[in-house]
Computed example of a mutant assay.
Amino acid sequence: MPKDYYKLHQTQFEIFIDSALKEDIGSGDHSSLSCIDQESKSTAVLLTKQEGILAGLDLAAQIFARYDPSLKFKPFAVDGSKIGVGSHVFSISGTTRSILATERVVLNILQRMSGIATLTHKLSEKIKHTSCKLLDTRKTTPNFRYAEKWAVHIGGGTNHRIGLFDAIMIKDNHIDFCGGMTQTLKKTASYLEQSGINLKVIVECRNAKEIQQTLPFSFVSRILLDNHSIPELKSALKQINHKKPTEASGNINHENLVAIAETGVNYISMGALTYDAKNIDLSLNAL
């Protein structure tokens, strides 16, 4: 994932920020309007309440700036930093009403992204002695996918496709609906030629026969081995014999992750990186 991830996907993030703020503020922050003077200026600091890997700081800065460009954001850390209990992450200064209006959206994003980055880092560390890379999936929170994938990258993982539009992934249902692997891949080859698009093509192979049928197709970028046991995975990798990059997925957790990585598979994709991550506890406190 490129360093300028926000700029690369700026349109999507701006849509997300506007939607998130509208969802929370609605017709107005009546709590603050009722008791905070319009001229009031304040400073608040973000404090951490548990250890983890920080993620979402750059996005938080964009949220503050988009809502109220006059707010002064001062970071004390960077995305990817290890944080401990009581760490000061940033300060925000300016109109009190603006700080309060953006507080919850910023906290939600930082807590969620930091939780994902922390889990990704923990699991990546377990397999760092191998050449295997940890991938995320499309099992993400609706309308929050770009941020969650950004968090995976910050935590040391590698991003899979963002959606249905930036890679072709032929899975079991595609194969069954088309009447078999060879027929499916012939149709895919025709589609690529006619459309002129240049996309990675990942193909799920359930058994040795499907692997044999897939290998001759040069446009296939990677072979996906889903729900394979360790012996089945080793057998499949032996058959593939480094002719295509490989990816393992399905029922992979912290208990079997290392054993799967040690088979020599190139990638492991885990939906749990996003759906099983627990938020990091953070708070924004007035100074």
Rank of each mutant, 00 (worst) to 15 (best):
M1A: 12
Y6F: 14
K7V: 05
K7F: 08
L8I: 09
H9F: 12
H9C: 09
Q10E: 15
F13H: 12
F13V: 02
I15T: 14
K22P: 03
S27M: 07
L33F: 15
I36E: 11
D37P: 07
D37A: 15
E39Y: 12
K41L: 13
T43M: 10
L47D: 10
Q50V: 02
E51W: 00
E51R: 15
L54V: 05
L57E: 02
L57G: 04
A60W: 03
A60Y: 04
A61N: 08
A61L: 08
F64R: 04
F64W: 12
D68T: 06
P69W: 04
K72A: 13
F73P: 08
F76I: 07
V78K: 15
G80S: 04
S81I: 03
V85G: 08
V85N: 14
G86D: 03
T102M: 06
T102H: 04
V105T: 15
V105R: 12
N108P: 10
R112F: 00
G115E: 07
A117M: 01
A117Y: 07
L123W: 12
S124C: 15
E125P: 00
K128L: 05
H129Y: 01
T130H: 09
K133F: 14
L135W: 11
R138D: 00
K139N: 07
T141P: 03
T141V: 13
N143I: 00
N143C: 11
Y146I: 11
Y146P: 00
A147D: 08
A147G: 01
W150T: 05
A151I: 04
V152C: 02
G155Y: 08
N159V: 03
R161W: 05
R161C: 05
G163Y: 09
G163R: 14
F165Q: 10
A167W: 04
I168T: 01
I170W: 02
D172E: 14
N173F: 06
H174E: 02
F177V: 12
C178A: 15
C178L: 14
Q183I: 07
K186Q: 12
K187D: 11
K187V: 09
A189V: 00
S190T: 13
L199G: 04
I202F: 09
V203H: 00
R206S: 12
R206T: 04
K209P: 00
L215Y: 08
F217M: 08
S218L: 10
F219H: 04
F219M: 11
V220D: 02
L225N: 03
H228F: 15
H228A: 11
I230C: 03
E232L: 06
E232Y: 08
E232I: 01
N241G: 00
H242Q: 12
K244H: 05
A248F: 07
S249I: 00
H254W: 06
E255Q: 13
N256R: 11
N256C: 09
N256A: 05
A259D: 10
A261T: 01
E262V: 05
V265G: 05
M270V: 02
G271Y: 09
L273E: 02
T274V: 09
Y275D: 01
Y275N: 15
Y275I: 13
K278T: 13
S283Y: 05
A286M: 15
